[in-house]
């Protein structure tokens, strides 16, 4: 019950008709999006289902070898409609992964298409071992 919205001292107002169209006033849930993560010797590939999110609402950060991404979704609202069935939540997507190997941060690439976020994280190349020929003699 949200009693804070009632103003003190005013005359009793008639109860408004049930505003079933109003979305419930609860905090939006954070969803962990479903992902596929694959690895090659050169890079990690993270693919996440983030339906309903535009590119500018996606945030990808990489710190050391930890990838974190989040995406904020604006819930759909239809004036004059009553929610009849709700099987998915429109909140925030968020997930993080620690990669076993260091990431080349400058070369990270993210792409969003049809509600699918694809992040390519190239691995930092370790210093190439130098081959030194030693003359034995």
């Amino acid at each position: 019950m949200n009693t804070e919205r009632q103003e003190v001292g005013t005359a009793a107002e008639p109860i408004p008709p049930t505003t079933a169209t109003e979305a419930p006033k609860r905090p939006l849930r954070v969803r962990a999006p479903r992902v596929d993560v694959t690895e090659t010797p050169q890079a990690y590939f993270v693919i996440a289902d983030v339906p309903g999110v535009p590119m500018n609402a996606i945030d990808v950060t990489v710190e050391e070898n930890r990838l974190e991404f989040s995406a904020r979704r604006t819930p759909a609202h239809y004036d004059g409609y009553t929610p009849a069935l709700r099987q998915y939540e429109e909140g925030e997507y968020r997930r993080a992964f620690s990669m076993p190997e260091a990431i080349e941060r400058e070369k990270i690439h993210a792409d969003l298409r049809d509600g699918v976020l694809r992040i390519t994280l190239p691995k930092a190349q370790p210093a190439q071992p130098h081959k030194v020929s030693v003359q034995l003699g």
């Binding site: 239809y78 009553t82 929610p83 009849a84």
Partner: peptide, 10 residues
């Protein structure tokens, strides 16, 4: 998964 919203005629 679907969300369904109804009005009197839609």
């Amino acid at each position: 998964p679907v969300n369904v919203f109804t009005s009197e005629d839609q």
